[in-house]
Write a protein that binds this DNA or RNA. Structure first.
Lengths: 299, 299
DNA sequence: TTGAAAGCGGTACCAG
DNA sequence: CTGGTACCGCTTTCAA
């Protein structure tokens, strides 16, 4: 009889009175990239477990949208902000540092001494991969980069060029115009037309590599016999491509957990804030890479 | 000089005074399934364009979490709720109908006369696909279902069985224990062991089909020569599998748009609420399906 | 322990 | 138009 009389406390009134809400804000560059999505999913799960709401905003790598998101999350007096974006800007960082909200950056280029700051050692990962391919006999290698000049992707590109330089190996960069699967496909077409003639293709991420694999298949180029291909991220799809993808593993679930915990501990006046966490990637060898020229005639 | 003096209006105070917030709530069963993710992405984009915040909750198909999410969104006095869940329950629907928040259901089993209600004509899609495969000469077909008994997935399963019954064709159902890529892989193993000997495999969704393709490849069974495979959803990955996947297209972006618009129009005391929108899927033929037995000797 | 009252930071209405 | 004031619904403090 009193069924209809359910009571739903007004959380705005509560947040107003408590001067802080039980909501955390997550800002992501791109929900399409499983890389971002995986860390978001982890944060979302942990947050709800701990009784927090989650507001999310996708910036699509657009700094204006990033600004807008930050602004509304501050307006929401969120309990913490996880900024999982590649297009971070000094002005945004400064805006964030003038407000007493715990912040954790991930994959952000510029950061803030007051915030927790999770970074991937992209350089190390890329080096490992190039060294591995070099040890397989590959010399001419191409790197399919990201269409946008974002720091985290630039780091991989630069590490590639440096390591290749170290081996005095001929390196080639393809800068796609699109993103995701299609980027890989289109970039491969361009690469094959270019006449560079690589024996291995490295990709800025796994979804790009999926597009590469498809285009090579369509062109009748066998992987890894005629061409080695590698990705970056180790999304779960990487195990299901044909052939399964050699890639660099980034522990996204672990990262999501670190991020959320950093937010919570900062909120409860945690430790000296401003720690920097550097994550080491790990090379995962699958079947998309192999020795150069099965029947090599070189010494 | 007054740089530091930025003013961020307290949105909680505003929501409290206005007695309604400029936030919309999105509840999803599962963020891993690109199907849900795609409609979420569309809603998120439109919402931010119109100046709304977005709070999101993933239920993982768990009714308890669904209840909790609804409760907090009501507490948040959101401007609208998009419930994109397969595990909807009468009790939840009732709870929602006792509150004056616009609601749109999508893919929900039970719904509410007051809310907008977007449904997919799963039956029609499945029929189209079965008829197409039958016309290709396939008779013994298997369906890889969803591990959970959710209405939207059950509909596809039932439609499969009915259509197969219509043709008096031998039908087999595999009920996986897992989800996603792995479900497809494991279910295929089980199917091949079962001795049913199908010439075509239909999958409840595309990601499952990706797992099927991989397992068939590993077992040396050629697609579509020895086995036809079809998915459901037409996620963008479906174009990049090997071979590209025949599937049923569901216009997720359009659906996201419909959902968001329904919320807005209901808010502004829109039209007679409670409309039901039925979406027709479309068969997309790619290379994962082909005529049964290339060198068939039957009449 | 219980209850009344003062805020939290805006909105909206109303009088000047 | 401009400025003052009541009020949104919950928390917190302080008094009874």
């Amino acid at each position: 009889m009193m069924k209809e009389m359910k009571y739903y406390p007004n959380l705005h009134a509560r947040s107003l009175a408590r001067r802080r809400s039980r909501t955390i804000g997550v800002i992501l560059s791109n929900l399409d990239n499983p890389f971002f999505l995986d860390v978001f999913r982890t944060i979302e799960t942990l947050a709800h477990e701990k009784g927090y709401e989650v507001v999310v905003a996708a910036t699509h790598y657009d700094v204006a949208r990033l600004h807008a998101s930050i602004k509304s999350m501050i307006g929401l007096r969120v309990a913490g902000i996880a900024a999982i974006v590649s297009e971070m800007e000094p002005s945004v960082v400064e805006e964030l540092s003038n407000v007493e909200i715990p912040v954790v950056f991930y994959d952000a280029w510029v950061t803030n001494k007051k915030a927790t700051n999770i970074k991937i050692n992209y350089k190390k990962g890329t080096q490992q991969l190039v060294e591995y391919l070099h040890s397989l006999g590959h010399r001419r290698m191409a790197f399919i980069a990201y269409p946008l000049r974002l720091q985290p992707t630039e780091e991989r590109r630069t590490a590639f060029l440096e390591t290749m330089g170290h081996y005095s190996a001929p390196a080639h960069i393809v800068l796609p115009t699109s993103d995701g699967f299609f980027a890989g496909r289109d970039a491969t077409r361009e690469l094959l037309r270019s006449g560079f003639g690589p024996t291995a293709i490295l990709c800025v991420n796994d979804i790009t590599a999926v597009g590469v694999l498809k285009e090579l298949r369509d062109q009748g180029i066998s992987v890894p016999k005629q061409m080695s291909v590698a990705g970056f991220d180790n999304i779960s799809l990487a195990q299901f491509t044909n052939p399964p993808l050699t890639t660099i593993h980034i522990p996204r679930d672990h990262i999501g957990q670190l991020a959320f915990e950093a937010l919570l501990s900062a909120r409860s006046g945690g430790p000296a804030q401003g720690q920097e966490i550097l994550i080491d990637p790990e090379l995962i060898v699958r079947q998309s890479t192999g020795a150069r020229h099965l029947a090599s005639s070189e010494a």
